[in-house]
């Protein structure tokens, strides 16, 4: 009897809860199925592939840590890793500073604020192929207007005009380009952050006679800490993923990148789709993942610290 009764209540409770669950799952299902099939499974597969040797056709063989060991003696991998890190170190702070400054300026009551906001967002929405084509014209080593101005007005001798897309300058060009292209995007995020700061804080500071710099130093900057964290992490992740900017600004005669411009994702692509070393290419991808993972962990730690 008792068993029966409990069974009945249990059944009732179950059916109600199950129904609620099913409704909830029905909401999730369309996205989750696609997400699981096209993202989760490949990720699991990617981890496995790093420990295997496969060319996409012949039988798979087990490689253990061989792929990772090989990385240490690979000149091109090391160059790609170095360039990617340099590119990040250059791009992240510059973009952050530029977008913060822009956001602060555009948060003031100025005439045509909407127009300026829209303009600074243009580079972000513009197609990469189109804007890199323009940049390559503007920075053309011998005909471009930038070098033309350097030559005509700054009297830089012809032989010393900067070669923007090769050698030591290519990473600088990539950094400048990225700052230009993405600062509008991060500016919007900063704008959203700025709008969350209560105006009372500023009014109180004004009464105390605080100047512009003091207000920034003691109100804006500390209040924006969490936004800055978010911006820095997103920037870092996106910088590690850089590929198309490099290939479009610095790709050579056969589309190749020399050791001064090669980046991790280009190397992954080359190993996988040109040489069909899928295992090795996955191992490089794992390095990329670890880098991004470490940065994300630092962010979580930092956010926790600020939340306390």
């Amino acid at each position: 009897m008792a068993d029966q009764a409990s069974a009945v209540t249990k059944k009732k409770g179950l059916s109600r809860q199950t129904k609620r669950d099913l409704v909830a799952y029905s909401f999730i299902a369309p996205n989750f199925i696609g997400f699981a099939v096209f993202t989760l499974i490949p990720i699991v597969f990617a981890f496995a592939l790093a420990f295997l040797n496969w060319d996409g056709s012949n039988p798979i063989t087990f490689a253990g840590f061989d792929n990772f060991k090989q990385l240490f003696s690979d000149t091109f991998f090391k160059a790609a890793l170095k360039n990617t890190i340099i590119y990040c170190v250059g791009t992240v702070p510059l973009t952050m500073i530029a977008s913060l400054a822009l956001a602060i300026v555009l948060n003031q009551k100025v005439i045509g604020r909407g127009v300026f906001r829209t303009l600074s967002f243009f580079p972000y929405v513009a197609s990469l192929v189109a804007v890199t084509a323009v940049w390559k014209m503007l920075f053309h080593p011998s005909k471009g207007p930038i070098n033309n101005i350097l030559y005509t007005y700054f009297k830089v001798p012809l032989e010393e005009l900067p070669q923007w897309f090769s050698g030591g300058l290519v990473l600088l060009s990539m950094v400048l380009f990225s700052v230009w292209k993405y600062m509008g995007y991060y500016m919007v995020i900063y704008l959203a952050g700025l709008q969350g700061i209560s105006s009372e804080l500023y009014e109180a500071a004004s009464l105390d006679g605080a100047g512009t710099w003091a207000k920034f130093r003691y109100i804006t900057w500390p209040q924006l800490q969490s936004t800055t964290f978010f911006v820095v992490v997103m920037l870092t992740i996106n910088c590690f993923k850089v590929y198309d900017i490099a290939i479009m600004l610095a790709g050579g005669g056969s589309g190749e990148l020399t050791t001064s411009a090669t980046v991790l994702v280009y190397y992954i692509y080359q190993k996988a789709f040109m040489e069909w070393k899928l295992g090795y290419s996955s191992a490089v991808a794992m390095v990329l993942f670890v880098l991004v993972f470490v940065v994300t962990m630092i962010q979580f730690r930092g956010q926790k610290k600020y939340a306390e």
Partner: peptide, 22 residues
């Protein structure tokens, strides 16, 4: 959490296996 965990995962990390599957 499954969603969150993959946000930080660059697409390039799994583009090869994804391609093979596709």
């Amino acid at each position: 959490f499954a969603y969150i965990a993959t946000i930080a995962m660059p697409w390039q990390v799994y583009m090869v296996p994804q391609f093979i599957m596709m």
